[in-house]
Design a protein around this nucleic acid. Structure first.
Lengths: 243, 243
DNA sequence: CGGGCTTTTGAGCCAAATCAAAAATAGTGG
DNA sequence: CCACTATTTTTGATTTGGCTCAAAAGCCCG
């Protein structure tokens, strides 16, 4: 199975085999990390670029009162800190949500490679801009959708994003987050998350058990949540990959 | 008074006089627009890049139930649609909030200029990444801060951003938004916005009258809101500009 | 099989929504 | 410059979605 980073970037620009190989070869490390471990702290300026290869991580900020807001889920193929070289330092932290595998790319190596390959540069910036588009949709989700629709929308999105890297066949996916993590993502209490999940199960939209999420009827869940995948900019059906 | 776009970009990278001139000359149009007019619709792929020169605009999405979520305020110097060439089409709409002046830059011209000027390219991507950082903070704001702190935080941010383009001397600024627009930005009802504003006034933190917002004590408001400007990545005190 | 986490249930409460109307402001045309 | 509208802002009364507090039940694993 191909590298999830490569699989993802192919949605952004048509990479040549040479570019794909060069990118894969740049990944110098692949370290397994446990659940709920901090990878990068606010204020850091990591030397390497981190990429999630397996599992789920997140961007988050802590508030003075101890509250935590998760601002993004990072799924296989997602960069953690591509933006650091331009912004100087992290303005938020990165942690794993589940046991994960994290790879590293030397920042210099990536920059040199990108200089020689405009298509790769396009793909990298495409990925950054899609992250921004996802953030906008999360804001809409928080601001305007009641909690059942909000949680449902998050499930629709994660299904679509995992599908784009071939990790959600038949709308069944590994999704071993805790309800507390979901609560910190959706901006509601974990008690309320629990009640909302019961409702989504009762309505026959999903099952979620033992860390495996199944969307029983993608169309129905998307209709319920008011989900439209346009903001993911995946440009048509996911590319099929020869093996 | 220099161009607000140039003033803003200088926070991101040290532009040469040649770059600043070239950028200013690229601005082919500067059209006055009334309040509450749509500039760009979801699904559009505008040929020119739009920049706000005066007034306030916003990014927003409409929901099926008629609700509107504003996801970003665009102040003088901000791009509306720099990302369109990479993402293909707008996944949200842009409208003015107040009477504004909007300028245009030919997309090709900007790209050619950027190709010849790596520093300018850096500045443009810096601006994009700061937009993303602001979005993250808005998400924290929506998810975790009670409404008085939330509104206060938005005022702190807009003061800092306007200050960065020299438009908020002494923490007094033109800010002629309606309470409804503020409500659609903060994700609360306009009735509640009104009550929150009374509270902020009663506590002596702000005045807001006739479209002019005054922050009476910047430190006090920032402490109240839990505001930390690090996410704006302005890198130290705003540059002073020779005239 | 016992300790620690995560999920689930129950009861009471509060921030913010809704609905409805009045007061204040800002435009607009005569 | 003023009357006439239309929009905003403000107030009041009521309802509600989601929170907090607290405890029970289930689960994972050594």
């Amino acid at each position: 199975m191909a590298n999830p980073l490569v699989r993802k970037l192919e949605h952004g620009a048509p990479l040549s085999d040479e570019e794909k190989d060069a990118l894969a070869k740049l990944m110098v490390g692949a370290r397994p990390v446990g659940a709920h471990e901090d990878l990068i702290a606010e204020g850091d300026a990591p030397e390497h670029v981190h990429v999630v290869l397996e599992g789920f991580a997140c961007r988050y900020k802590m508030l003075p009162d101890g509250g935590r807001q998760i601002m993004a889920w990072l799924v296989p193929g997602d960069f953690c800190d591509l933006h650091v070289s331009l912004l100087g330092e992290m303005d938020h932290a990165i942690a794993t949500l589940t046991p994960s595998v994290i790879a590293f790319l030397p920042r210099n190596g990536l920059e040199v490679l990108a200089e020689d390959h405009p298509t790769l540069t396009r793909a990298l910036w495409w990925a950054t801009l899609v992250d921004e588009a996802v953030l906008r949709e999360w804001l809409v989700n928080m601001g305007r959708r009641p909690s059942p629709q909000r949680i449902a929308h998050m499930f629709c999105e994660v299904r679509a994003r995992l599908h784009a890297v071939d990790l959600a066949p038949d709308a069944i996916m590994e999704f071993p987050l805790s309800q507390t993590d979901l609560a910190d993502s959706a901006g509601i209490s974990s008690v309320h998350v629990n009640r909302v999940l019961q409702q989504l199960r009762d309505e026959g939209l999903i099952t979620w058990r033992g860390g495996v999420l199944q969307v029983l009827d993608v169309g129905a869940l998307e209709a319920f949540a008011g989900f439209d995948a346009n903001y993911l900019h995946l440009k048509g059906p996911p590319a099929s990959h020869a093996h």
